[in-house]
Amino acid sequence: MRRRLSYEGLALAVPVTVPYQRYSTHGAHWFIGRAMHALLAQSGLSRQQIDGLTVSSFTLGSDTAVGVAQHLGLSPRWLDHIPTGGASGVMALRRAARAVQAGDAEIVACVAGDTNQPDTFAHTLNHFADFARDASFPYGAGGPNAVFSLITTHYMRRYGATREDFGRIAVAQRNNAMHNPNALLRQPLDMQQYLEARPIAEAIHLFDCVMPCAGAEAFLVMRAEQARDLGLPHVLLRGAIERHNAYADDPVMERGGWRMDRDDLYAQADVQAGDIDLIQTYDDYPVIVMMQFEDLGFCEKGEGPDFVRRHGLDFAGSFPNNTSGGQLSCGQAGAAGGFIGVTETIRQLTGQAGSRTVAQARLGMVCGFGMVTYDRCLCTGAAILEKAA
């Protein structure tokens, strides 16, 4: 196995969620600005102490991270713009951690935010990826529902998954969301309602789909000793991986890049899959959640359906997944969807998760998944976070 510098002594702190809105007249800058304001207010830091910044967003238009820095009155000495959607949260924490480790920054603010107006989602799709647009739009299949219809039906035919198996994921997450005041969808959802929901595309029904919305997520990365000196509840970064364009030879996606690097991830953290107390999978559609269970070693490929039948997936169950409710019940605030798992894990491991707290949790895993084109995802990542002593 290749040698990798450890992440020892690096911390994540101050989880921020700017309340989600189904639609908003505010732009992405407003949501990102509100997130930065909350980071400063909750940490007690000044703007001058934030000397690193990562920004993730789909709706900044032609602007970039440096424009955000100017508009927020920041002067960072380290800066990164990470336009990888659902993978951006894990990628942001990895890059920020390495910047702090190298001395390029002391405190990095990792921020993601997007707006949502009636035409925002269509505009994003039209400008998301030329390849995906040109390959699918002529057939009337633009957008992610068609992509994940293809992936879901392929997985069901190959591995025998049923709609009830995917429903177990969605229903458990809705139960979690009912304990999360930030979630947009907090009405009860049972299996019958899930199964009877209107169809969207073959095998995909209403509650399999995320709801686009506006909002922001953010957190800080710094040295653990600095977090202690500042009196900030924090978690420790034990390991992190990312992979791009994995398994390109698969005719239709059924494996993600997590599978290539999971041994490295567990080796970095010096733990095994069975040691993980809770997981935040990227959940734009239930089939991808199931793939993450398999590709990260909690069960073998094709055993995902049986795995969800044997485990309780809500915060009080035997395998807590997406304890905030995830995107399926909180909403998908654009690129902030890649951050919601990070902020939720920080909350869980620092005693800030309220009534949805996973009892005696010490280790949490966060997964990222982003930039889907036609029939597969291009960017994946995962990180393991540990409760600080």
Rank of each mutant, 00 (worst) to 15 (best):
98 R>T: 04
111 V>N: 03
82 I>N: 01
109 A>G: 13
84 T>R: 13
101 Q>H: 12
113 G>K: 08
114 D>T: 13
83 P>A: 02
87 A>Q: 12
117 Q>D: 10
97 A>G: 12
82 I>H: 04
85 G>D: 02
95 R>G: 06
112 A>N: 01
84 T>L: 14
102 A>F: 13
97 A>H: 05
112 A>R: 00
94 R>V: 07
91 M>G: 08
97 A>P: 06
102 A>R: 14
86 G>V: 09
116 N>Q: 15
82 I>A: 04
111 V>T: 09
97 A>F: 04
84 T>E: 11
108 V>K: 05
93 L>M: 15
104 D>A: 15
107 I>P: 01
96 A>W: 02
85 G>E: 07
105 A>G: 07
109 A>S: 09
117 Q>N: 09
91 M>T: 11
82 I>G: 03
103 G>H: 08
100 V>R: 00
84 T>C: 10
100 V>A: 00
107 I>D: 01
91 M>Q: 15
107 I>V: 15
90 V>H: 11
82 I>S: 07
84 T>G: 00
85 G>M: 12
95 R>N: 12
89 G>M: 11
110 C>K: 09
92 A>W: 03
96 A>S: 14
113 G>P: 12
108 V>L: 08
116 N>T: 11
114 D>R: 13
86 G>K: 11
86 G>D: 06
105 A>T: 07
84 T>N: 15
99 A>M: 00
86 G>T: 10
99 A>S: 05
103 G>E: 09
111 V>Q: 03
103 G>V: 10
110 C>P: 04
107 I>Q: 01
86 G>M: 06
106 E>L: 08
112 A>I: 00
96 A>I: 07
97 A>M: 04
104 D>T: 03
109 A>I: 06
87 A>K: 08
89 G>D: 11
115 T>N: 15
112 A>C: 02
112 A>Y: 00
86 G>P: 10
101 Q>E: 13
82 I>K: 04
94 R>N: 04
87 A>P: 01
111 V>R: 04
105 A>V: 03
91 M>A: 13
103 G>Y: 10
108 V>P: 05
117 Q>P: 02
94 R>L: 10
86 G>F: 08
115 T>I: 05
94 R>A: 10
95 R>T: 09
103 G>S: 12
108 V>I: 07
99 A>K: 00
90 V>G: 04
116 N>Y: 09
96 A>Y: 05
111 V>I: 15
117 Q>K: 15
87 A>W: 01
108 V>H: 09
88 S>Q: 06
100 V>Q: 00
86 G>H: 11
